[in-house]
Amino acid sequence: MTSSGKKIFLYGGLLGGIALVIGAIIAVTAPKLTVLTTQLSESDHIVGSKESKIILIEYSDFQCPACKQFSDVVKAVVSEFQSHIAFAYRYFPLRKIHKNSGISAQAAEAAGLQGKFWEMHDVLFEKQEQWAAMPESQAIEAFKGYAKDIGLDEQKFEKDLSSSNVIEKVAADEKSANKAKVGHTPTFFLNGKEINNPKSLDEFRKVIRDEIEKNNK
């Protein structure tokens, strides 16, 4: 091989390799933005202005650390824009990697039957580290404790937790997520269109503000 041939081989290989690695990883990890067809329904847990035309839907998993991180940002954004948007939380438990994700979603739904979905939602995220590593039976005991703390009827909560209604509601959310090809949590849909997860509160504000302005025109 000539010396310039060798140079081309060396540096070309280096640059090509670097470009290939970056390209391949972007292709594998990049979220494919999808469109959500399911609109809000009676069974959704909604805050904000229910009549609003601007609908933000989050698919989330109570055991996912990124969802916990996002929950504060979401709360801030939703309370700021509550007179302009409707926000709904839907379950997308990543059962394969989070063993208590399914039962925690059921706990929130069972609390919802007593009108305290959001209270349970907050406690589950707040105490995520406590129950995430527990075996399921122990996690259920922890959830019962939270139910008591937020003032639920414990017996009803325990009965609802594993009732078919609750299990089906969680499964229905999962089904709608799979239909929309949700691939990660949290995933946000703003008026049916998936948005890239905002990096900061300001970025989230901007996305919502832009959508509101678009709708006011």
Binding site: I25, C64, H98, N197
Partner: peptide, 26 residues
């Protein structure tokens, strides 16, 4: 380089890391 690039890109596209059973990544 592959490892660090995976971490960086997952961060900037906001994807959850696939972490296995231990789950401490995020």
């Amino acid at each position: 380089f592959i490892d660090a690039t995976y971490l960086t890109i997952s961060h900037y596209v906001g994807a959850d890391l696939y972490c296995g059973v231990s789950g401490g990544c995020s």
